[in-house]
């Protein structure tokens, strides 16, 4: 008699337990999908550029066509970038040297600073592209995609000069696109950060030199 009542109690508990487990399983899946979806949406939203990216070859060929022609009355002014400011998107960072190691095919990286690729042109008023890169992190280059055409970037150099550039256009490209290192046209600034769900692509922002002081 006792065995029968124990068995019936157990069998009553079992469906209830199963129902709880099923509910818990479904709840975990639903919460995961909602939270994951919102997170991915935020990543996409944060990386959305305010301007439509152009192919890099198109952006740089436009600059190249206005070819570098140093005039006789314009003496060369150049310097190594040590600070970068983009007031419209609240970027104000130190710039440290960035190096590339051919043996390991890797670059030096900094979590919190921008880096100037030392094999590219120094900030100058005559020729070439000055290439500065930084992580797509909050407080670094995370908000750079929000930049609008004509927005200014101010580069301060180690010898006290200030170069002001104006944003022209951006380009999204693959990591193996190294065409910017072949550029020889009028002086431009190129900023780079990563983009994509897994930050698998590179977004390049091209700025034209506006003034030097």
């Amino acid at each position: 008699m006792n065995q029968k009542s124990t068995k019936s109690k157990k069998s009553k508990k079992q469906p209830k337990q199963n129902r709880w487990q099923l509910s818990a399983g479904l709840a975990f899946i639903l919460i995961g999908l909602i939270v994951g979806g919102i997170s991915l949406f935020n990543v996409w939203q944060g990386q959305r550029s305010t301007t439509k990216p152009q192919p890099l070859s198109k952006v740089l060929s436009h600059e190249k066509s206005q070819k570098a022609s140093p005039s006789n009355d314009q003496s060369l002014i150049s310097g190594t970038p040590v600070r970068i400011r983009v007031p419209s998107v609240n970027i104000d960072l130190n710039v440290i040297p960035g190096y590339y190691y051919p043996a390991t095919k890797s670059w030096t990286l900094s979590l919190n600073n921008a880096q100037y690729a030392v094999m590219t042109a120094k900030a100058n008023n005559q020729q070439g592209d000055t290439f500065i890169y930084a992580h797509a992190r909050y407080g670094v280059f995370h908000d750079l995609p929000k930049i609008l055409p004509g927005a200014e970037t101010i580069i301060t150099t180690d010898n006290g000069h200030t170069f002001t550039y104006k944003f022209q256009s951006s380009s999204i490209t693959t990591p193996d696109d190294t065409t910017l290192f072949d550029y020889k046209g009028k002086p431009v600034l190129i900023l780079q950060t990563c983009t994509g769900t897994y930050f698998q692509n590179r977004q390049l922002f091209v700025f034209n030199l506006a003034k030097v002081s």
Binding site: P102, T120, Y133, D176, D182, R202
Partner: peptide, 15 residues
């Protein structure tokens, strides 16, 4: 070898 030796752009991923 100068800038011609560069095989890829820096890996500047986010958090």
């Amino acid at each position: 070898g100068g800038a011609g030796a560069i095989a890829a752009l820096p890996n500047t991923g986010g958090s």
